[in-house]
Design a protein around this nucleic acid. Structure first.
Lengths: 151, 151
DNA sequence: TTCCTAGTCTTGAACTGTTCCAGAAAAGGT
DNA sequence: ACCTTTTCTGGAACAGTTCAAGACTAGGAA
């Protein structure tokens, strides 16, 4: 049961229920942190044909409605996840780009305390941890910089 | 004296000293967090004509050599700064894109402690604070969402 | 000093991720 | 079942960035 009531979710957010939206929600449920291309492919497996623009439109609608969150690690195309509302962060693998969720270590909004905000009114602190995922880390033990050559 | 010995800086990093590199270093000194376009314009003021690719190449060389750091807030083109080596972060204005430096509040590498890294080997924690800069914040007091209409 | 060569810069084209546009199609209230 | 509004399709456009081939130059060798 990978899609726990996508239709209701959409309706409650004030969005129309369309095949594309349900399919995209399903794709996001199956693979969190997926990029647009991945989501489009997964959606096409479900529906047959879906234009790339429809996927972008759906993702924008979901993001605006607060059902999805857009994350953009430097150097990567945009990725999307359904986990919203909680203050969690991400670890990104420098080698393969894999992303995993990381809960905030200290309380609910720890990092919101900047030492000197220069007068900025801060409303969010986004933390991105950079490193190597378990797989790439293991591979690196034998080959120091696998991703610098052919990958 | 805005350029404290750019030539030496380059030489010590094992890089050739070229007009373009010196000029780009100067531009970065004058305006930290500048994007490529801004740097290119500033460089042309100094040298007359410089190709965009030369600017990209120089920035890549500087970044690889550890003289500059590339930062990419979501939704913004890449920006560069000369402040490297210390563990500092950034505040980004959601309205105008302005960026300011923020020193780490807790010790030297506070946020490196993720609650559960899922087996990732983390080597850096990047914190981006999002909010409104003083100017935009003041403007928002009278007009709730100025940046959603014409900007 | 002059010459040579690896390393740089220029010009121009290509590429990726994303957005814009106009018209066709579909959702859902009446 | 119909009509209005929203959404989707297909195609074009766009920004930021990178690639490629040749001209140029900084800086060490002769």
């Amino acid at each position: 049961m990978p899609k726990p009531d996508a239709a209701t979710l959409l309706r409650e957010a004030g969005l129309r229920v369309t095949q594309q939206r349900v399919a995209v929600l399903g794709a996001l449920t199956d693979s969190p942190h997926a990029d647009v291309e991945t989501i489009a492919v997964a959606t096409r497996v479900t529906l047959g044909t879906v234009s790339t623009q429809a996927v972008y439109d759906v993702l924008r609608a979901l993001t605006d409605a607060g059902l999805a969150r857009r994350i953009e690690p430097a150097g990567s195309p945009a990725r999307f996840e359904l986990r919203v509302g909680d203050n969690h962060h991400h670890v990104v693998c420098r080698s393969c780009g894999a992303i995993a969720d990381v809960d905030c270590a200290v309380g609910q909004r720890p990092c919101l305390t900047a030492s000197d905000a220069h007068g900025f009114v801060i409303d969010e602190a986004e933390v991105t941890y950079w490193g190597l995922c378990p797989d790439c880390s293991a591979r690196t033990t034998t080959d120091p910089h696998p991703w610098k050559e052919a990958q």
